[in-house]
Simulated assay, not measured.
Amino acid sequence: MQSIQHSNYSNIYHLLYKNEKLSKQDIADSLDLSLPTVSSNLQKLLDRGLIIKNGQLKSTIGRRATAYSIEPNVSLSLGVEIFRNYSTVTILNLRHEVLAVHTVNLPFSNDLHYSQSLSQQLLILIQNKGYKSEQFIGVGIGIQGLISNDGTTILYGKILDSTGMKASNFSQFLPFPVTFFHDADCVAVAENAYHAMDGIFMSIGEHLGTAIIINGSILKSPSGRDGTMEHITLDSVNGRVCYCGRKGCIETYCSLSSLLKPNETLSSFFTELQHSKTEIVDRFHKYLKLLAESIYNLHMFVDIPIVIAGQLTKYMNVETMNVIKKYLKDYSVFPEDEEYLRLGHVVDHAVAIGAAIPGIEARIEEI
């Protein structure tokens, strides 16, 4: 009997989570429950602060029914993206709404002093925004590197020299748990939360990262190397030298580092592109051609949608996507009945947003 009661309680909450607002009758009809059962469980959810009364629903006859919604801010999650010279922090509520974005100007260092300093900045941010530490589920940290499947250890982090760093370095200074995530996985999770779909996600930023979502979940391997397709090679003999030590990795052709010159920013590059500066136009089309070749190689690996995501997304448009699709058509050796290339939607802070989402999903699952 107890399990049935908990099931009704959970089912009602999850139904409300999937909808903006519902009446008692809506809930009763959707879950095939009696109104007294619905009323009893709604009161429990109200008492625990998990839902709120949210106005009234429109009605053409009789009294307007009270509307119920989840309380999205009862639990919050922190997401952090660590860069070499600073970190970006986001605060998300249960609806994945971004309540705050903050930059911490703290150079990265793989030591306890850095972990303590960043942790202190997170606590200061929480206080300054008027939240309580007890509201927070935890913090997810997105970082460039291979991560253990339990999210406790950076197994390999050559770019930031973060190999061996432990999540416990941070959690000992915080009143909630800390979990590491591969930055490309975070981007895929953020995109999937915005628009659910399976696919290969190419996170294009300073470096290229890749992740695969199958059946709604990140594809994981025991080694942590589930998303390192950026080290597939186009030219392993005469290609560009990659930070991994090999030549010709698609990282060296598809990352923003491969597109931009030193001291050149993405915004300045696309400003020049809009002015049709010849050198910029030629460089961009060469980049798009190499990007298309890399995309086609991934397409040959597994025939699922491929999503261009990350920082580049903000500057892509229909015209640019059509150029890539034309190159893909030229590369194609098989008939293609459907377009498989997609453009991501999360244009800002995708890593920090995606790092916060797993904690939210785990919290929702617990209810």
Score class of each variant (00 low, 15 high):
residue 42 L to D: 00
residue 44 K to D: 03
residue 45 L to T: 02
residue 46 L to I: 04
residue 47 D to M: 05
residue 48 R to F: 03
residue 48 R to M: 08
residue 51 I to G: 00
residue 52 I to P: 00
residue 53 K to F: 01
residue 54 N to D: 14
residue 57 L to H: 03
residue 57 L to D: 02
residue 58 K to H: 12
residue 59 S to F: 01
residue 59 S to G: 07
residue 59 S to L: 00
residue 61 I to T: 14
residue 61 I to Y: 14
residue 62 G to F: 10
residue 63 R to M: 04
residue 63 R to I: 07
residue 64 R to S: 10
residue 64 R to W: 07
residue 65 A to S: 12
residue 66 T to Y: 00
residue 66 T to Q: 02
residue 66 T to K: 01
residue 71 E to S: 13
residue 71 E to T: 11
residue 72 P to Q: 09
residue 73 N to C: 07
residue 73 N to A: 06
residue 74 V to R: 12
residue 74 V to L: 08
residue 74 V to Q: 12
residue 77 S to P: 07
residue 77 S to W: 07
residue 77 S to F: 06
residue 78 L to A: 02
residue 79 G to Y: 06
residue 79 G to S: 03
residue 80 V to Y: 05
residue 81 E to K: 12
residue 83 F to M: 10
residue 83 F to V: 00
residue 85 N to S: 14
residue 85 N to Y: 14
residue 85 N to M: 11
residue 87 S to T: 05
residue 88 T to N: 15
residue 91 I to W: 12
residue 93 N to A: 09
residue 95 R to L: 13
residue 95 R to T: 13
residue 97 E to F: 14
residue 99 L to V: 08
residue 105 N to D: 15
residue 105 N to M: 12
residue 105 N to I: 08
residue 106 L to K: 04
residue 108 F to I: 03
residue 108 F to L: 07
residue 108 F to M: 06
residue 109 S to Y: 11
residue 110 N to V: 07
residue 111 D to Q: 11
residue 112 L to P: 06
residue 112 L to K: 15
residue 113 H to G: 10
